[in-house]
């Protein structure tokens, strides 16, 4: 059972991060240096979700051999680099994953 209060607090945090950006923060508060560093936030945080979901199995153990997720992720990255298309990236990864688990590794 998810705590309702936790959902509400996460909602408040998300709301205030947006409220800060449109109502309180001003351009002058950001030096070029701060802006440069903040531009790395997605690169710093999203891999923390991506990597464990690819390299770890359900129990949290490292799975490097015969791991279809690694191959599928590499294909998705290549498709992403070539097409720069979000949908193509997601679906090329999913389709190659299904191909691997249902046909090759089956």
């Amino acid at each position: 059972m998810v705590e309702w209060s936790l959902i509400i607090y996460c909602g408040i945090i998300t709301f205030f991060s947006r409220y800060l950006m449109i109502a309180i923060l001003k351009k002058e508060m950001f030096t070029d240096r701060i802006r440069e560093v903040l531009s790395f936030v997605p690169s710093a945080i999203f891999p923390a979700i991506i990597f464990p979901a690819i390299f770890l199995d359900n129990t949290g153990d490292l799975l490097l051999e015969a791991n279809p997720k690694i191959f599928a992720a590499i294909i998705a990255i290549l498709v992403g680099l070539i097409t720069k298309n979000v949908i193509a990236t997601i679906f090329s990864g999913l389709i190659s994953y299904w191909f691997l688990i249902f046909i090759i590794f089956n």
Binding site: F40, A73, I87
Partner: peptide
């Protein structure tokens, strides 16, 4: 195994950063 769509979705959000060395 649709949970694999989660890392793929976040991967897709980073696609523009793959070309920059520091990123």
């Amino acid at each position: 195994g649709l949970s694999f769509a989660v890392p793929l979705t976040f991967l897709a959000l980073l696609v523009d950063d793959f070309r920059k060395l520091i990123n």
